[in-house]
Design a protein around this nucleic acid. Structure first.
Lengths: 206, 206
DNA sequence: GTCTATAAGAAGATAGAC
DNA sequence: GTCTATCTTCTTATAGAC
């Protein structure tokens, strides 16, 4: 990785832990292994580093959206769902979604940074909304809607069913962002949630 | 309200919108209507203002917990629930909870401030966890558990049922913190969620 | 592209009069 | 308790050599 990208990478790490204002260009430079003035050969100023992070993230999101792989899970897994859906594959679906969001390094740091900076900048608030609510809910809504039309799941309100699927995942994610040590406990709760979700909306009780 | 309290109040407003590091003592002073050096007659330094906000909030939380009125709804409403529970009162319960969290001025500003500052300080992360997950889930778990033992609701897993009740409320709350204009839309979604929750866990389909 | 030296300015905090 | 004036420190950013 060249210096220009290493600067973005280290800056993102620091911004995600302390917030933009608490990170000094000197801190970034130190982690990159250069002196602060050298940063200015790569970026006009501190704000430009932040902007480049946002831009890089937009690029990644476009890629994701373009490949329709919005959830971040691999297409193989997504495709399999349409064919043979059962409780176990539903649990797999939710766990994969959760673990992708939690462990993908860029996603995780970027989400934390957005969480910290969202109230300062309306644009960032919109990005957060888009990324963590609108995109997951619409993609999963599509997926779950397909399962409804196949008779695998039963409901007359797909959006609310999708909310019931995703909201606990989102809540557990914010728990783990704050206290990563609770991941195991969160995964257990997640599995219970998903099994109950399947029992609620699955054919069995319909 | 005396100057000492006005300082806390204005500081909380600013911290909740911009974060601690982006607010200057001069900004706080200006809003209070005094000059910055005068602040130091009331608080030792900027950090002491922040600490006093946390302390004030702890005091309020203790009061709430002490009166067992953890959800923030009034006791009359809470008591009524145990007696005559139906879908409409369930909707009322959830909406009240949501609107209290969203509109209570101190609660709202404090939540936003915690959201911004949580990753910088483990103690603040714990406060957030306690306030927005552990306390609501345990209180509502108790409430919903009571309804289960009365046969009003049916489940063999009260904690997950409570998660299904609360997680969508939490998600919609974070939406409105970011974009207050979406409150009406969120309330509509919330009502749909609650009615579906009642149908899922209510006697009817058990 | 990286460095050292340093300018420029911002922000927190204190001194001391009133 | 509030003010003006001021100090100190920290932080961003630039200049210019290598």
């Amino acid at each position: 990785m060249d210096t220009k990208h290493r600067i973005l990478d280290e800056a993102l790490t620091l911004f995600s832990e302390q917030g933009y204002a608490n990170v000094y260009v000197n801190d970034i430079a130190k982690r990159v292994g250069i002196k602060a003035p050298s940063l200015y050969k790569h970026y006009k100023n501190k704000q430009a580093i932040f902007d480049a992070i946002i831009e890089e993230m937009n690029r990644r999101f476009m890629e994701q959206a373009g490949s329709l792989n919005i959830s971040g899970m691999d297409p193989t897994a997504d495709a399999a769902i349409y064919q043979n859906m059962n409780e176990d594959s539903m649990v797999e679906l939710g766990k994969n979604l959760f673990l992708y969001y939690l462990h993908d390094d860029y996603t995780r740091r970027f989400r934390k940074m957005l969480t910290i900076e969202q109230f300062r900048d309306k644009e960032l608030a919109k990005v957060y909304q888009q990324q963590y609510f609108e995109m997951p809910l619409s993609y999963q809504g599509m997926l779950l809607g397909l399962l409804v039309s196949q008779g695998v799941l039963v409901t007359d309100n797909v959006p609310v069913m999708t909310l019931h699927f995703y909201a606990p995942i989102y809540l557990l994610l914010t728990v783990c962002d704050r206290e990563p040590k609770r991941e195991k406990e969160a995964l257990k709760t997640l599995e219970e949630h998903l099994r109950q979700f399947d029992r609620i909306y699955g054919r069995a009780i319909a």
